[in-house]
Amino acid sequence: MTDLAIAIPPAPRPAHHTGRLIGWALLCLVLAWAWRGADMRPLDLFRDSGNMAQFAGDFFPPNFRDWRIYLSEMIVTVQIALWGTVLAVVCAVPLGVLSSANIVPAWVYQPVRRVMDACRAINEMVFAMLFIVAVGLGPFAGVLALWVHTTGILAKLFSEAVEAIDPRPVEGIRSTGASPLEEVIYGVIPQVLPLWISYSLYRFESNVRSASVVGMVGAGGIGVVLYEIIRGFQYADTCAVMIMIVVTVSLIDLISARIRKGLI
C-alpha cells in the first residue's frame, strides 16, 4: 500500500481569516453604534426589579368580569382578519401571477412588483390610520388596511411559488394550442395550489394578530378594548384579554393545520 506513489495535494486553505475578522469587527462596531441610539439600559431591569415584580403581580389573577364584551370584540377581530385575508387572496392570485418572471414579460412584472413592494413596505397600522380618515372609525377601516398590506405580501409569496414550478407540464398544455390564460389555469395553478393554501392560512393567522393591533388606532375589534384598559391601568383586565388573544390564535393555528392537511 505504502509504495503507491501519490502526490498528496495541499489541503485547501480555509477562507480568509483576516476577512472574517474584519467582518466580525464591523458587526460589533455597528452594534455598539446602535446601542446609544436605542437607549439600551439593561441594568434598569435589575435596579427596578421590585417595581417589575409588582407590575407583573398586578396582572394576576386575570379579571374576566367583562368577558362577554371581550369575546364579542374578539369575534369582530377574527371577522376583520377573515375579510382582510379573503380579499387579499382574491387580489394576490392575479397579481402574484403577473409578478412572476417565468409567466409575463419584464414590462409587466417589474411595475406590478414595485406596486406590491409599496403595499408591503407600509405597515398595516399606518394603512389603518389612513383608512380611518377615509371611511371613519371602525372595523371596516381595519379590513381595508389588512387587505392592502396582505395583498402585497401574498402576491410576493405566490409569485415565488410560481417561479419555482416545473415548466414541462406547462409546455404540455401549450402544445395543445391552449391560450396563455389556460396555460396558467391548467399548467401552473395545480402545481402551486398546496403552497398557496399554506401561505394563505398562515397569513390568516398573522392577520388575527395584526387585527388586534390595528384596533388600537381605532379600527375596531379587541384592539380598541386593549388600548382603553391599558391606558386605564386595568392590568388584571389586560391579562384576561391577552389570554383570550393567545387562545384564539392557538385555536386558529390548530384549525388551519387541520385544513392544510386535508387539502394538500
Binding site: 414541462r168 407540464p169 404540455g172 401549450r174 402544445s175 395543445t176 394550442g177 399548467g187 395545480p190 402545481q191
Partner: peptide, 16 residues
C-alpha cells in the same frame, strides 16, 4: 398548434 399533438419524453402531464 391545435392541429399538432406533441408527446414528450417526460410525458409533461400535470401530476396533481
Amino acid at each position: 398548434r391545435t392541429q399538432i399533438g406533441f408527446v414528450f419524453q417526460q410525458f409533461n402531464l400535470v401530476g396533481r
